[in-house]
Amino acid sequence: MAEAITFHFDVDGENFTSAGNASVQVKRKLRHLGFPADVIKRVAIAMYEGEINMVIHADGGSADVIVSPEEVKIVLADRGPGIPDVALAMKEGYSTASDSIRSLGFGAGMGLPNMKRYTDSMEIDTKLGVGTTITMTVKVA
């Protein structure tokens, strides 16, 4: 039985151009580990969306990816403003991103819904003024 491996990434909140880098790196590691292509794709998309969210709304944060042969767990933690209404935030098309963010092509209100769609489970732990931690798992079928 192999032990789980944790990959840690700091997500830089000030640098929009590097958003998505952690996702690219995770994708590479999963490829090296020999995960099936569909698992890699689901992890990469969920992770990418989460990363972008942290940059847009929370001034960055950290991403931990815990990998075992059975599942890939992604823990995204930030010290942002928190999500006032999780149910509303989960609605497709709902976004609080600013116009300048939208002009970059982000803020379509599909981030959280996509994260849920591409993972097997997703938990949101959020406290206003303290931060948000999102834990997602993708099972290896």
Binding site: M1, A2, E3, A4, I5, F7, R28, K29, R31, H32, L33, G34, F35, A37, V67, S68, P69
Partner: peptide, 23 residues
């Protein structure tokens, strides 16, 4: 056809052990 060359091992447990060592 997709033909990856970068996998550490065809056995995932072994690949993970190698990855830990690499880290």
């Amino acid at each position: 056809e997709y033909a990856p060359v970068s996998a550490l091992s065809s056995n995932m447990s072994e690949a993970m052990a190698k990855m830990s060592r690499i880290q």
